[in-house]
Amino acid sequence: MVRRSLLLGLLPAGLAWPAAAQDRFITLASTTSTEQSGLFGHILPAFTRASGIGVRVVALGTGQALDVGRRGDADALLVHDKAAEERFVAEGYGGPRRQVMYNDFVLIGPASDPAGIAGTRDVAEALRRVSARRAPFVSRGDRSGTHAAELRLWQEAGIDPVRGRGQWYREVGQGMGPALNTAAAQEAYLLSDRGTWLAFRNRQALKLLVEGDARLLNQYGILAVSAQRHPGVKAREAQTFIDWITAAAGQAAIAGYRVNGEQLFFPNAGSSK
């Protein structure tokens, strides 16, 4: 039985390359947090049904995704680092930037909470306590949107964490998942987006300790890559996708995505924040 099901699966697969589900498709460079949350699996089929355009998602950190856009290797970018996105537009690589949705970051740490930050809503204060205790803190260190947000929060706290580099401040230079795995192993604090945290399975002693500070807002924006710079870019299809995700149908699809009954992303294309 086992052998037959494997053979039946492999035989046709061995004969032909998978034809792309659609002849028309765009490549969307996005972040690991959105992909791993399962959001795309929920909203993209609806878009493809409506438009006949397939979307291939390459999940990267925001900094890397913007670089992929600069090289013209994606047609659209869905990322979460407003300052970097505005720089991308200003440099003429694409745009305009449209905001799509938000969720929030949360501060995670070991249940033992050696810095004693549980219960506070002031994220800057929480970070000050972590650094004062020199408690291990894992940083993405990969120019991702989450990394950028973390650095902004340290600035708000008036602390230069880089001085703790190699000691309590540990930059892993990897995605959210690997950073969470590292923090779990080292009983360290770290900043995570809520979606990845909710989907993360290897928590061990990690717990959500701080949430709800307005400064923990995680805003996603979408950008078209400039077809003037890179003639290979599928500008029309990319614009179709951007129009869809920022309009009623796409926004409703985002709002409708839930994990264990919990809404992960909140559409806000309409508001002008």
Partner: peptide, 24 residues
């Protein structure tokens, strides 16, 4: 390959993905 689901996801990139999701 970009580890695109249903298009360029291989066994090894899927393993990397599940590892980063913490589903060891």
């Amino acid at each position: 390959g970009g580890n695109i689901e249903g298009f360029t996801r291989t066994m090894t990139t899927a393993i990397a993905l599940e590892t980063s999701k913490g589903d060891l």
